[in-house]
């Protein structure tokens, strides 16, 4: 599908979950490594609680969009959103999925149903090499702040990305307010621990 040095990541989630911050941390780390990076972000309308997606292409010099069925890693910050963008993950790719749902208003108002977790993960398992599911929201809460869920996922992702861990941490350090650094560092470690290879 792609050249060997390139790693394509798709981050899917809900507006307000910190999707853009997460991809900024990854992109900045890549720049520190001196490797080319391309990303495409969702700004504007969809950010108001809608579903959002960010493409990140490490080691890439082409356009910012990951081709369909081309992502090495699908990072789902929310299970339904992981499935919504599942067509991006490649056959040999992996999906890292936060299992903690954020109910859309169509569900909270009773107009639609939120599917059970197995029904979300089963098709994902079928189309890619491996699915790692973790309750990152709970893990973040245990680490001190459920808002650090995106950093738990970053910790998990760090085991699969072709970026050195210390560089990712340096980038994280520069991207979050100092008073939240300790929580975020714990969140990172917990996420990493969840996917020990």
């Amino acid at each position: 599908m792609r050249t060997s040095e390139c790693c394509d990541i798709v981050v899917a989630g809900v507006g307000g979950q910190g999707v853009i911050l997460l991809s900024k941390i990854i992109g900045k780390a890549a720049v520190k490594e001196g490797s080319p990076v391309r990303a495409a972000e969702t700004h504007g309308m969809a950010q108001r609680g809608g579903s959002v997606i960010t493409h990140i292409r490490l080691g890439c010099k082409f356009g910012p969009l990951v081709p369909v069925r081309g992502a090495d890693i699908l990072l789902g910050l929310e299970p339904a959103e992981a499935l919504r963008y599942a067509h991006y993950v490649s056959k040999g790719g992996i999906a890292l999925v936060n299992t903690n749902p954020v109910l859309p208003s169509t569900v909270t108002t009773g107009r639609a149903k939120y599917p059970p977790l197995d029904e979300i993960l089963a098709p994902l398992r079928r189309i890619c090499r491996d699915v790692k599911a973790l309750d990152a929201t709970k893990l973040a809460a245990n680490a001190g702040n459920p808002q650090a869920m995106n950093v738990v996922m970053l910790g998990a992702l760090s085991k699969y990305m072709p970026l050195r861990e210390e560089i990712v941490i340096e980038s994280l350090r520069e991207s979050v307010p100092a008073k939240f650094l300790a929580v975020n560092m714990r969140a990172f470690e917990v996420g990493k621990g969840e996917v020990e290879l």
């Binding site: 809900v14 309308m45 056959k91």
Partner: peptide
């Protein structure tokens, strides 16, 4: 072309998540 394998489930089971007023 590696077409997206049938992910009909996605369309069938996923609740819509349109952007909404805060």
């Amino acid at each position: 072309m590696e077409e997206p394998q049938s992910l009909t489930e996605a369309d069938e089971i996923l609740p819509p998540r349109p952007p909404a007023l805060c």
